Amino acid sequence: MSKPLLTVWYNTRCPVCDAGIRRQRRRLIEAVKAGRIEFRDINFEPAALSAFGASLEDIRRRLHATDAGSRLLTGADVAIAVWRMTPGEGWLATLLGNPIALPLTRFAYDRFADLLYAWNRHKCRW
C-alpha cells in the first residue's frame, strides 16, 4: 500500500477529539479503506512526530498531521485538509481556509484547542 495522502494524529483520551475523529472517519470510510487517509492515536506512539519537534503534549493540545510530502500540518490546517477530503465538507475548507479567513480560522481553532486542552488536564484525562 502506498503512503497515505494524510496521516492525522489525535488524542483519543479527549472525548471531544475522539468523537470528532470518529465522525470524520465514518464520513471518510472509503478513503480510509483505500489508504488515502489514516487516523492514528498519539497515545500509542507518543514520539511519532518527535522528528518534527512535536511533543506528546503538543499533539494532545492540537491536531497534527503529515501529508504525502512528509510535511507537518497543525491545528486548523489539519481540519481544513480533512474537510477537503470529506464528501460534502469541501465548502468548509474553501470558506475557512481561504487566504482572508485563514488567520481568523487559525486563531479561533487555537483558542478552542487551548480551552479543550485545559479542560482535559483539569479532568486528568492523561
Rank of each mutant, 00 (worst) to 15 (best):
I80A: 14
G35K: 03
P99N: 06
R23M: 14
N98H: 01
G35P: 04
G53C: 10
C17N: 03
E89W: 13
L28M: 09
R111F: 12
R106L: 02
L72A: 07
K3G: 08
I29F: 14
A48G: 04
T94S: 15
F52M: 06
A31F: 00
A34G: 08
R61G: 00
L63C: 08
Y117N: 04
L115A: 15
W9N: 02
G75P: 05
R23H: 12
D110V: 03
Y117M: 01
A79T: 15
K33W: 06
E57Q: 08
S70F: 12
A54N: 04
G97F: 03
Y109P: 01
A101T: 13
P15F: 03
R22S: 08
R125L: 11
Y10N: 00
R25P: 01
E38R: 09
Y10D: 00
P103R: 02
I80K: 07
P87R: 15
W119H: 14
T74A: 14
G90C: 12
E38N: 11
A101L: 06
L5K: 12
R36L: 12
A101R: 07
R27L: 11
G20H: 06
R121D: 09
G88E: 05
V16C: 03
L56V: 05
A19V: 04
D18M: 13
R111H: 11
R106S: 03
S70G: 14
T7P: 07
F44P: 00
L63K: 04
P46N: 11
R26D: 05
L116V: 06
N98M: 01
N120W: 05
R84A: 07
I80P: 07
G90Q: 06
R60T: 05
D67F: 15
G88W: 03
V32Q: 02
E57W: 15
P46L: 09
L115E: 12
I21V: 12
L92G: 14
I42G: 04
C124G: 12
D18Y: 08
R60A: 03
W83R: 05
R36E: 11
F107R: 08
A68D: 09
L49W: 13
C124W: 06
C17Y: 00
N120D: 13
D77G: 00
R125P: 01
Y10M: 02
L92A: 13
T86R: 08
I42F: 04
A101N: 09
F112V: 12
F107T: 15
E38Y: 01
L49P: 09
R36W: 10
A51C: 05
A81Y: 05
F44H: 14
L72Q: 07
A48K: 01
G20C: 06
R23T: 13
R61T: 13
W119I: 11
S55D: 10
H122V: 10
T66Q: 09
L5I: 12
R22W: 00
D67W: 09
H122K: 15
G75L: 05
K33E: 12
Y117T: 00
K3V: 14
M85A: 08
M85K: 08
W119G: 11
T105W: 02
V82D: 01
Y109Q: 01
P103K: 03
R40A: 13
A113T: 10
R22Q: 10
A51E: 12
